[in-house]
Design a protein around this nucleic acid. Structure first.
Lengths: 140, 140
DNA sequence: GCTTTATTGACAATGATTTTCATTTGCGCC
DNA sequence: GGCGCAAATGAAAATCATTGTCAATAAAGC
């Protein structure tokens, strides 16, 4: 349940294709988008396999996992392993990736203070990007 | 599409019940949890109606909408004032409310830096409370 | 080349949310 | 107080992303 890194894990055509597609993508992709792109590329891979492979990669820390505004799971190849959060525009969906050492520290300290372990956290910012902001008018 | 406040909108038993339940709830609720609580309260309201009413309230800005870690939509009565975050135990569901000035400041600064306005944020911590922690064994 | 066993993938199943549509019911009006 | 219509309700069916099932396939090691 926690030992898998080198145990099994065969090198298959499908896994390579999925990793390549993920690497080629600049941003986040849903499993289905990735599946479509592979099909478009002429690579035949089952949707189930895409889902499963992405999960496996995510467990191994090879990809970042989060959710888009609609609750769908989205994946991205892990950029140097450091994790960050997102600032999303409520109006147009535009998103910016932001670092957040402060939040990481806060999460860790708060959890420890309350005796929690194995802590993960979510922190998303929602607002109106400058293109969507009604200038000079404070929202709501 | 933006004019509805007084147009239609009848005052029904169901809508009142849902609003009351939301007000009584301390934190976020999924539509289904709310539905269960209403049933438990002896109030008969259709699940469909709960979903629809929550959507309507959300559109009107009366409730905050976000998603829990599993991608489910969760609602909370809009408390534009003070807010806090939650540290939730993954295993038993126990939750602790935590203040977080650091996060508030980070959210504000980050948003401003990127030109966003009307920013709100969510920050939830998920972990294992000390009762559920496998002592001495790091998770996963 | 052969065996073992992880992997694959078509299909069924799940579960939250939405849609459909016939019935009910606020609410303004007479 | 009674009518009528559009909004609201809700049970059941439809969606849709995701997960489970399981027989067939194909790496890796011998």
């Amino acid at each position: 349940m926690a030992e898998r890194a080198e145990t099994g894990l065969r090198s298959t055509r499908q896994r390579h294709a999925i990793e390549r597609a993920l690497g080629a993508a600049r941003g986040f992709r849903t499993a289905q988008e990735l599946h479509d792109e592979l099909r478009r590329d002429g690579v035949s891979v089952g949707l189930t396999t895409v889902y499963r492979t992405l999960q496996t990669l995510a467990e191994g820390g090879a990809v970042d996992v989060l959710r888009n505004g609609e609750g769908e799971v989205i994946y991205r190849r892990c950029t140097t392993g450091e994790h960050h959060h997102h600032l999303v525009c409520r109006a147009c969906g535009h998103s910016v990736e932001v670092a957040s050492d402060d939040v990481e520290r806060w999460a860790g300290e708060t959890a420890t203070h309350h005796g929690f372990t194995s802590v993960t956290h979510t922190a998303e910012l929602y607002g109106l990007c400058h293109s969507c902001s009604p200038e000079g008018r404070p929202g709501k």
